[in-house]
Simulated assay, not measured.
Amino acid sequence: MKKHDSFRFARYVLDLYNKYKDNKEISKFLFQSVVIYAPHIKRSVVNAVFDIGAIRYNFFPLFLNEVKKEDDYEQIVDKIRQNPNFDLTEEEKMVILYRPLFNSTKEEIENKALNVVRDIQEMADSSENAKLTGTLFVLVKKYLSLEGQEKIWEVLEGMDIVQERFEQKHQELTKELFKELLIEAIKEGDSSQSINRIIKKGKFSEEEVETIYREIDEN
């Protein structure tokens, strides 16, 4: 229930205070809370104040269904179109990411999300493009139909930078698996031929092998 949010957030702030109150490097505490509510949450169901007399806490609620950033978004997109190498500020990135959620009904979010993905494809920085698209997908996923999710995934999968990262992750996982096999083989006293075979398949350097042996000895 949203009416209990104030208690939950107050407890969080008190936990933060309790964590740092004895830190001598911090001489003064000033906590200000801003809570961002998804588009389907209305102001009428939110209580931003927790007051039990001895303790009073309040936070600033930001309702995405009340935010209007249409003009700001269009200006950012125009900058990208005019100069694909344009470096976005952190604030501009936030406008892009939250664009589908600003002042939108649940039904509008998917269309706006797909439009944002289309608009930012003109960015020259493929890494930044992939990061924004992926983050946007996470933010709006629960509002998307299966078809909408698949459309964004198709865009992500088509990006070279994403494919490279998938391949890198696969290689990292594969090497981690071979490392576990190598450690087990060494501990079990397998033949040097068997151990060398794992080292070769895992593409371990001499330094990496020495580190693994050292870790085994230390444990």
Rank of each mutant, 00 (worst) to 15 (best):
K179M: 10
A38S: 06
L136Q: 10
I109W: 04
G148L: 08
E70G: 05
Y12E: 12
I52V: 15
D119P: 05
L16Q: 06
D51M: 02
E92C: 02
V140Y: 11
Y20L: 02
D5W: 10
K201W: 06
K24V: 14
E128A: 14
V13R: 00
V49Y: 04
E208R: 04
Y143M: 10
G189S: 14
F59H: 12
L156H: 10
A124D: 13
I36Y: 12
N85H: 10
V209C: 03
N58P: 04
S126N: 12
L97D: 09
G148V: 11
K2H: 12
A54K: 00
N111T: 12
S44H: 12
E70N: 06
F102P: 03
K142D: 12
I96V: 13
P100C: 09
E167A: 12
M1E: 08
H40F: 09
R56C: 01
S205M: 03
P61S: 08
V34K: 11
A48I: 02
D5N: 15
S126R: 09
F204P: 04
Q168R: 09
N23Q: 07
K179T: 07
F63T: 03
L146F: 15
D190I: 00
F31W: 13
E154C: 10
T133W: 14
E122F: 08
E74K: 14
N65D: 05
S191D: 12
E70P: 01
S126M: 08
N219A: 11
I212C: 05
L88M: 06
E107M: 11
S127Y: 12
I26H: 02
E74P: 01
L88F: 07
D119K: 08
I109D: 13
V49T: 13
S191R: 11
V138T: 10
L97C: 07
D78R: 15
L156A: 08
Q82F: 02
S126A: 13
D15G: 00
N18A: 13
I216A: 12
N18H: 12
Q149Y: 07
E74T: 06
D72V: 10
V46F: 04
I120C: 11
S33N: 09
G148I: 11
I55D: 01
P39C: 06
I199A: 09
K141V: 05
T174C: 01
S205C: 08
L144T: 05
I199F: 13
F59K: 12
L146H: 15
